[in-house]
């Protein structure tokens, strides 16, 4: 299962993002997250999947790019 659905769920439940605004091409800024919220959001994701997002790979733009990155990190962890 892609991380996308988890990211969407956290954004709606914890960060109070309007469900209708969640689209693969939406950026976290579009969804109303400021820099502190983005860092906290990544922390949530890392905790959930027991992964670590390296600083040099945390520069994703859209939700879809974030989900792809997380999926790759989960897969790499499984190797």
């Amino acid at each position: 299962m892609s991380a996308y659905s988890y990211l969407a769920e956290v954004l709606v439940d914890k960060y109070d993002v309007d469900k209708d605004k969640i689209r693969p091409e939406a950026t976290l800024t579009d969804l109303g997250l400021d820099s502190l919220m983005v860092v906290e959001f990544l922390f949530d994701v890392e905790d959930e999947f027991n992964i670590e997002v390296p600083d040099d790979r945390a520069e994703f733009e859209t939700l879809n790019e974030a989900a792809t990155l997380i999926d790759e990190l989960i897969e790499a962890k499984g190797d």
């Binding site: 960060y15 919220m37 906290e40």
Partner: peptide, 8 residues
Amino acid sequence: IPKTQQLF
């Protein structure tokens, strides 16, 4: 307090 503000 809005939920997202409470978080911080």
